[in-house]
Design a protein around this nucleic acid. Structure first.
Lengths: 106, 106
DNA sequence: AATTAATGAAACCAAATGGTATCACAAACG
DNA sequence: CGTTTGTGATACCATTTGGTTTCATTAATT
């Protein structure tokens, strides 16, 4: 099953969620710890974490009465792959245009 | 001025817009040409193109009565940079954890 | 046992989003 | 010229989104 891109791209589209990812790159944190870094309720942060998890960008796991959240190191891969493909397609086309021009002006 | 990430990430969040980018990677196209590839009105496609342009992922220019749209080859760069930074931060932390474990178990 | 702290879950709300339809206008073409 | 074609600009609509509040539950603490 090729990983679904859409949930990942959707998760990345919100600035708060991107900040959460950078936070979690520093260390894993509980929901309460993450929420202390933002001027919004725990409930709101909790929803953001859920969307990040749907996008497979983080994993979470209950531990005692809290839930710890950690970055999923492989989660960005499909997104990066998609972008690199686009980059490559663009480069190919640029190269094709360039050689066509050279043929015409030679 | 560091390029604003938000409009680019926002533009990438929609599947139709990602398909448009791949289309334009093949060749530049007018609005009408792009819209023929999608089961929606020209007006809708036109809005998508506008959002892609706000994200600096494409450029557009009127030519006669039509408007041609082309990929902006540098538009993806800020997004790629952001993701690679996150990747690197994550790798650093993994390495730190690993060496800490090795110290404790030696 | 009683209290506190962290989470889960649901209802609710305003604003953004992705789409439509419609009208006006300019350019290409017979 | 008249007609067609591509675009620009609105107004409008349903759904999604990002946030809140509230209440229940469960684990840690004293």
């Amino acid at each position: 099953m090729t990983p679904a891109l859409q949930p990942a791209f959707r998760a990345l589209a919100d600035p708060t969620r991107r900040r959460i990812l950078r936070l979690l790159a520093g260390s894993e944190m509980t929901i309460a710890e993450v929420s202390r870094a933002f001027p919004m309720t725990r409930a709101a942060v909790r929803k953001h974490l859920a969307i990040l998890e749907q996008g497979a960008l983080i994993d979470s796991e209950p531990r005692g009465r809290e839930r710890i959240n950690r970055l999923n190191p492989n989660g960005l891969r499909p997104v990066l792959d998609w972008m690199h493909e686009l980059d490559a397609a663009w480069d190919d086309r640029l190269a094709a245009l360039k050689s066509a021009i050279e043929r015409n002006t030679s």
